[in-house]
Design a protein around this nucleic acid. Structure first.
Lengths: 206, 206
DNA sequence: TTTACTTTTGACCACTTGGTTAAACTATAT
DNA sequence: ATATAGTTTAACCAAGTGGTCAAAAGTAAA
């Protein structure tokens, strides 16, 4: 009885969890195997027993993060709501999601430019299909519901306004709120309403 | 004749230049003193002769980057153009600026969350004053030129749509253009017109 | 209990890292 | 020339790194 990968042996899952925290916080280069081992409450050699090397462990973590993130995005884009409602829902849900793990986007971007080839391969293996959403926007333009606009720019605008203010919190918080974390938190909360209205206001045909 | 700091002794400037490239590309943790020395064409010990330690060298680089970036931002916000024109100019200039050093924002964000205390101090020492721009927006609202909107959200929206698409290029390029770098480059070029119109379209009173 | 196996550990290693030091080089002033 | 000061180098070091290994500890079937 040791054919299949069976019950992700707890220890293995502990390691992955600890590794995720450390890697995301410090990046591949800043992360130490010892710290991961400590955080998982095990011996350092065990890390190499389950995952052969630091690189392998990192990749496992990276894959896990991506494969949780990507379906999350796709799901919403494919729902059946009217466009404006979809924009509202997406913004709200997406801002919340990123706020739960605010370090992940910068982590991904930093690692992506540290080692473009390897990471890109991982990325490619799991597909995102924005085409359906693009088509939906085109249809609304034809219907005359919204102003003519390149759907790509609209999507990028939407993503930008959701993601950037969260990842840039350490800067923004200082620039506009003098290190008042709660004020910035409230600010992000407001954005769940402000952003969709800002967008809709721009594209709605009057 | 060795009282003043006089002519930034060439070597020192070479080191700073090399260090900037390496630090920005690999981050503090990923950067190697040896690589910086090689890139500067000098012995590794010279790094420690001019800058005492890796930390000191890093801080020098970080300060240099910030002190070039910040006036660049302030300048435009304080010019005398009408609001819409200012938004157009800002977008165009800012997108170009960031495209010249696309790695810097992620570098700053990554380092900022690696060591919030130390970096924040550096940040604080050089002030940015968004208040003037905020007041200008408020005035336009009172005048009735633009729709009532929280100036902070407007500013953050503007920054987001400028910065994010550039720093996220490695992801976006894959997601929407299948690794076609030139297509994405053209896309960013378009944004210099699309973004300001998108914003103005949203806030202009009709 | 014995056997066979997986899991876990402590001790260890080769190598890289940032950093030091003493000596060599350079140029200027006397 | 030669003393003086700043600059540059090669060789070196201690600490930390990812990684290994053989043995111990656990586990379950025979």
């Amino acid at each position: 009885m040791s054919e299949m990968a069976e019950k992700n042996s707890n220890t293995e899952q502990n390691i992955l969890e600890a590794a995720k925290v450390v890697f995301v916080a410090k990046g591949m280069d800043g992360a130490r195997m010892q710290e991961i081992a400590d955080k998982a409450g095990i011996n350092k050699a065990l890390l190499h027993y389950y995952f052969r090397s630091k690189d392998k462990l990192f990749e496992a973590v990276f894959v896990e993060i991506l494969s949780k993130l990507i379906p999350d995005i796709s799901e919403l884009l494919l729902s059946e709501l009217p466009l404006f409602e979809k924009i509202r829902k997406f913004t709200q849900h997406y801002i919340d999601t990123i706020r739960e793990n605010p370090l992940i986007p910068v982590f991904i971007l930093h690692e992506l430019n540290r080692e473009p080839e390897g990471i890109a391969r991982t990325f490619k293996s799991m597909g995102i299909q924005p085409q359906i959403f693009i088509d939906e926007i085109k249809r609304e333009i034809e219907k005359g519901t919204i102003v003519p606009i390149d759907p790509l720019h609209l999507i990028v605008n939407l993503l930008s306004m959701c993601i950037f203010p969260i990842v840039a919190q350490p800067i923004m918080q200082h620039l506009i709120f003098e290190e008042n974390g709660e004020a910035y938190s409230a600010f992000l909360e407001q954005r769940k309403k402000e952003v969709p209205e800002f967008i809709i206001n721009s594209i709605r045909k009057k």
